[in-house]
Design a binder for these strands. Structure first.
Lengths: 358, 358
DNA sequence: GAAACGCGGGAAAGCGCATTCCAACCTTGC
DNA sequence: GCAAGGTTGGAATGCGCTTTCCCGCGTTTC
């Protein structure tokens, strides 16, 4: 029992294909009431379901939005995915998902796949990588994106723009103020009394990580403090864990500068892990080597992942409206209610127990 | 600059449409070497990208797998999504995502949408709801699924089968041994010395929750213990939190049965929250009212969510190979390397600090 | 009352591709 | 050397739908 076609519905209702099409699938010409009734009844009776592929071929749009993520199971991305998904649903479209596992070639491939499916728009989330090793692949990605755009597709990137892209390319972007927020985090931490810092950053060239690092240092400088030490590691939980185990003892042994003047304890060092899962890993690692948070060492993260809100000690972090990021990206490419927020997305520094001083 | 078509490539290479089609998009007839070369070169030069919609229309499959989830941002589902995504990628297909937010009508709509796109297969994850209120919508879902299947689609359900479905329907399923594992958890907890239990369950009719509850009681019975008290609440973090705040004081005041015989403390009650996020919420709630875990009250969860592995105290839970669940579902519907695992999926009870007795 | 007009419905031309026939060609085998 | 069988490339058809164009009809206008 193959699905019934529009043609069958038309015949069953005693009208032409054109008429059936007009009444069932939106057209600017609405056939007369009686006929519409009849067609709709026939469609119902036959259990007609329009073939979206054929429609897509005939009209020139597919109703598909392609979403490219590094990893759906990462809470950062899954939250963005949720925002995208919701918005897209409002637009009566559907989302096609691709996970790249941070691979640039996989990303290029995903773009090509979406292009092949004639996706109306593509939203890319996830940090760009910008270093020599990646430059060849970055330009392939750029080329693919340009071709896609030239064929009428819309592109939005969440976070840093595509490496090498030019404003004229017309790629939309939803900037994430990583730099500013990290700077503010540094300022707040300094204001709270922290003096020495260590940043657990991702690999060099990972733009999000680099931005957060740079912003943090900037904030420190504004506060009149020395720049933080930097330790590069994996941009994930294990990176944070490994670094903590490796550095734990050394870091804890550092002398707290004002220990002489101000009585008493508190951690000598405040560690800023450039994202929450790294921070969680780091905390686990520090504990592994016998350090207490925040008594022996303070830890701050970035993202404010929902699942981690009940973590103990409560994690100091920067809240990012992840779902909104996704929604904003969709608004950029599919139009609709784009509020006055093209200016950007807000975030908030949240100081919690993990960086508390006695 | 519209995308170039196969026809243009063929003309550019001086061959027929048929030949070009045969060399570029897999066919069982491979044209001769020289010609293939030429066609491929032309395609390259013109930047040809096959139109998947047209291909889908001509062949009768779309290369699309539809994935239906309750909520992408829920770590349970996002992990399944990851498994599905990976497998699907291996099959050179693409995944279409739908989130229902636990709405049955949304689920039906998602199925219809996927059917319209002529998805090759549909994978449904997420607990079924089985109660009177849902029965009308459940049968609509069932009807939609049957129609989809009748048109040649494959269906796989992770967890409990579709409510009302009959084995003859031929829907694949990836059973999750919720009952057995909960039973085992109860047994292990009993063996560890716990005697009184409280289950924080989801709303009645939510099959996953009901199964875990029933299994737990069963395990308790086998261990010769009294059945646990049951408190129904939301199947999410806030449900756990609310219940904990509400019940905290009362629960903590309960007398530990063998307190007379065996010296000393330990929690009087062990709380089993039917999923990890509820457990986390419960822990936060209990703390809110001044209770310590596990000294004053023990808490266990279910799922072993990855992000929660570094939680303190480490959460006793049941590990479920979520990504494998997704992979298995894809294997069922798309074939391929289906190991000898159609028998089912394994899980493991993991006793951690959150239920430790002194 | 005739001409101009608007409107509702239908015929038909694609959209970009896979695939079934066909015809021409090239191998074989005896 | 010739027929039978196997290849190979091409013409044509159709997948299910949208949309343009056209035609016939009932209205309006002077």
């Amino acid at each position: 029992m193959p699905a019934s076609t529009l043609y069958e519905v038309a015949r069953h209702a005693g009208v032409s294909l054109a008429t059936a099409s007009r009444v069932l699938n939106g057209s600017n010409r609405r056939p007369g009431g009686a006929i519409s009734e009849r067609v709709r009844a026939s469609a119902d009776e036959l259990g007609y379901i329009a073939n979206a592929q054929a429609q897509g071929l005939a009209k020139k749009n597919s109703g598909i939005l392609g979403l490219i993520l590094h990893d759906v199971s990462d809470p950062y991305f899954s939250m963005i995915a949720r925002g995208v998904q919701e918005s897209v649903q409002d637009h009566q479209k559907v989302v096609l998902l691709a996970s790249t596992g941070r691979g640039l070639e996989a990303e290029r491939h995903a773009i090509a796949t979406f292009a092949a499916r004639r996706a109306d728009a593509i939203v890319i989330a996830g940090s760009r990588t910008d270093n020599d090793a990646a430059s060849a692949e970055n330009s392939l990605i750029l080329a693919e994106l340009r071709r896609y755009k030239a064929n009428g597709g819309q592109v939005a990137v969440i976070g840093h723009p595509v490496v090498g892209s030019h404003p004229d390319d017309g790629f939309h972007s939803v900037p994430v103020p990583n730099r500013e927020l990290s700077s503010r985090l540094a300022a707040d931490l300094a204001a709270a009394g922290h003096r020495r810092f260590l940043v657990l950053a991702g690999p060099e060239g990972l733009v999000t990580s680099d931005d957060r690092l740079a912003g943090f240092q900037e904030g420190l400088r504004h506060a009149g403090l020395d720049p933080a030490d930097v330790h590069r590691t994996g941009f994930n939980r294990d990176g944070g864990y490994g670094a903590a185990v490796e550095l734990g003892a050394r870091v804890a042994a550092m002398e707290r500068p004002e220990q002489r003047t101000r009585q008493g304890g508190g951690p000598a060092v405040c560690v800023f892990a450039v994202n929450d899962v790294m921070a969680i890993g780091a905390i686990a690692g520090f504990r592994e080597v016998g350090l207490r948070i925040p008594e022996d060492i303070a830890v701050a993260g970035f993202d404010d992942i929902e699942t981690l809100r009940d973590f103990t000690p409560a994690l100091t972090t920067v809240q990012l409206p992840l779902a909104d990021l996704g929604r904003a990206a969709v608004a950029r490419v599919l139009g609709g209610e784009t509020p006055a927020e093209p200016a950007g997305i807000e975030g908030t520094v949240i100081l919690r127990r993990s960086t508390e001083l006695p």
